[in-house]
Amino acid sequence: MTNINLKTKRLAILCTFLFLIRLAFRAFGYDLLYHNPNDPYGISDLIEVALALTYLVSLGLCIVHALRILLLHWDQGVLGALALLSLCTVQWHSYDYLHHLAASLSIH
């Protein structure tokens, strides 16, 4: 396996792992942390924002890596780059629905 394909696989795993961590936190951890009724935001919201920013950075790295492969290394990993872009697109468009679904499954 070439270095480019290995990096593509690792970025796909990282992005998917962070995607699932965000959904799992929303479903199982968000309501367990204390939230003062007088405050507009609680610690759960701050953790959710931190997870979202971490995920967006990894998503950006995936997109930059895939575009770099498509532009500079066409012969070495075009299928992996297209699969990575497809994965990023599916995750981006499905997150809003899955986030609401995870919130409805939340344990109180």
Rank of each mutant, 00 (worst) to 15 (best):
L79R: 15
R68D: 10
L51H: 13
V90Q: 04
H35P: 01
L84E: 01
L84F: 05
T89Y: 08
Y95L: 05
W74M: 07
V57H: 05
A66I: 09
L20P: 06
Y34G: 07
L71K: 12
V57S: 06
H99V: 07
L56E: 02
L23H: 00
G29R: 05
L32K: 15
L70F: 09
N36K: 14
F25I: 07
L70I: 15
Y41T: 09
H99C: 08
V49T: 09
S104D: 05
S106I: 06
I4K: 11
A50P: 06
E48V: 00
H73I: 14
Y95H: 05
D39Q: 10
V49H: 04
V64Q: 13
K9D: 00
Y95D: 00
A52N: 00
L82R: 13
H65A: 06
N36S: 14
S58I: 14
L84P: 02
R22G: 02
V90N: 03
G60S: 13
Y55P: 00
F25N: 00
L6D: 11
I21F: 04
H35N: 10
F17M: 09
K9W: 01
S58V: 15
H108K: 14
V78G: 08
D45W: 08
L87V: 07
G29I: 01
F19G: 00
D75P: 09
L20A: 13
I4M: 03
Y34D: 04
N36E: 05
L82H: 08
F25M: 02
I107P: 02
Y55S: 01
A12C: 07
L6M: 15
S106M: 00
A50H: 10
D75G: 07
E48Y: 03
T89F: 15
A66F: 10
D75F: 01
G60C: 12
L84S: 06
S44W: 06
F19T: 04
E48K: 02
S104N: 15
S86K: 07
F17K: 02
G42R: 12
T8R: 00
L6P: 02
L72M: 12
I4H: 06
L98K: 01
D39S: 11
M1E: 06
H99N: 15
T89S: 11
V49Y: 03
A81C: 13
L98A: 08
K7N: 05
A27K: 12
C62D: 07
R68I: 02
F17E: 01
L6A: 12
L82P: 03
L105G: 05
L71T: 13
D39N: 11
H35F: 04
L70N: 09
S86M: 07
